[in-house]
Design a protein around this nucleic acid. Structure first.
Lengths: 241, 241
DNA sequence: GGCCTTAGAGTCACAGTCACCTTAAGTCAG
DNA sequence: CTGACTTAAGGTGACTGTGACTCTAAGGCC
């Protein structure tokens, strides 16, 4: 920071985003985590799948860049967006599959990676196709660069964070039942949770507000609807401003 | 990442480090957190104190860059080093004191900030002087750029992390008593901890190994010496390799 | 020996968690 | 209308970790 007025030409800066959404698993039909990947159309790692992203433009914030990537690849707005980590080690372009040995293509890239939660809808499927494809997060093909590692870390972070922070709302509509909220947790954590205990803890967290209404038309006792509290405090620097 | 083969000239990349060490407070004599700052010798923010750091060299990893900064400003090796956050918003050079209005000096800088824990020794004081000076972490002067914000975030992270991770060892010699370990926690958290309860929790964490020996020469019952377990598992990507 | 200081072990009340059970409230089949 | 079925919602008891506190152990110092 102190003396940073020039930079070595060969270090470039990119922003990538790990985008999570919930959809039914094609085999088990159980709801699981999915994420969109982009097929690389040039060396290195041409043809392999990679995280969506791009170089940081000089007129956009880091988080804005991640948002733009999200919009470009899925057509969606982020329900939740947080910086994951900055990956910049020298060896990160050379992992595993060295396809191109042309050193000019092996430029040093520092990637600032964000992770996002979205609600997939019709629009998302429309953007699909082209070079974008959605995959089950825990059943990914080999990815370009160190992106497998990055996705693993993002999954760890998501699974840790959902247990102590109300981020599940990013996967849900404004109003939802406790069963729906629990289903999100179960899908992310890949476990079954005791409905009674989950209910008690969710209500104790003080982040849920009962709407007073109930969901009608079910073949059983109608469940109460909730919405999330307006201002859940966060701790990342960006959001503290 | 995907298309990152060129970068806008005006975005430069720097690595800064928040370096924490424990020393007695000059007034209260109680042990507290200190950190070294560097006086800026050019615009913008000339004369103000800032975090030590510098541009990322094309042949060094991000963490290595932070280590080099640490070595350069204090002469010390890091006992603990972890990436804090990447700060890159457009307005971060313009906060508060706009001294230089020359736009060419207000280049866009993305800073990847690390935080480190060190044991200060004689060497550290020797490097002192020049443009480096140590300050009590909670009583800093106004800093250049958004560095006040960054230090605040680093302090939050340190204080949160020491409660659930055995990082206190970075402030301690290889062998130490439980009272010394507790003193580190008390200094970082600025609270008094119940010795008996702290003991119970520390031993329950399974990260301490009794050496079998006791510290002799005290004017009371000799305390047992401990050392930290060899392999404390961590979760940051760098250390998982 | 008596006193001081700190180490270290133990006790008790309390809050949160987990596994499990019971009751409430609706739909649907007959 | 009635009973079967399903899920919501509330409750209970065992267990666990924590905070406040007490008590004993082991040294040095006077």
């Amino acid at each position: 920071m102190t003396v940073a007025t020039s930079i070595d030409q060969r270090v470039s800066l990119a922003v990538s985003t790990v985008i999570f959404a919930l959809r039914p698993h094609p085999d088990t039909k159980l709801v699981t985590l999915w994420l969109p990947l982009v097929r690389r159309i040039r060396e290195p790692h041409q043809g392999q799948w990679a995280l969506p992203g791009g170089p940081l433009e000089s007129d956009e914030d880091l988080a804005s860049s991640a948002s733009h990537t999200l919009q470009r690849t899925t057509g969606l707005e982020p329900g939740y967006l947080e910086q994951l980590y900055a990956f910049g080690n020298l060896d990160r372009s050379h992992v595993e599959h060295i396809e191109s040995l042309d050193p000019t293509l092996n430029d040093r890239v520092v990637s600032i990676v964000y992770w996002a939660l979205v609600q997939p809808d019709e629009v998302a499927r429309a953007v699909d196709g082209e070079n974008v494809e959605w995959f089950v997060a825990d059943e990914l093909p080999p990815l370009a660069f160190d992106h497998t590692e990055i996705v693993d870390y993002a999954l760890t972070r998501l699974r840790a964070k959902i247990t102590y922070t109300p981020i599940a709302h990013a996967f849900l509509p404004p109003e939802f039942t406790l069963a729906e909220l629990r289903a999100v947790h179960e899908a992310v954590l890949r476990t079954n949770l005791d409905p009674a205990n989950f209910r008690r803890q969710a209500l104790a967290s003080k982040t849920l507000v009962p709407t007073g209404t109930c969901l009608q038309g079910t073949s059983h006792r109608p469940p109460a609807l909730f919405r999330f509290e307006a201002d859940p405090p966060t701790t990342t620097p960006e959001e503290r401003r």
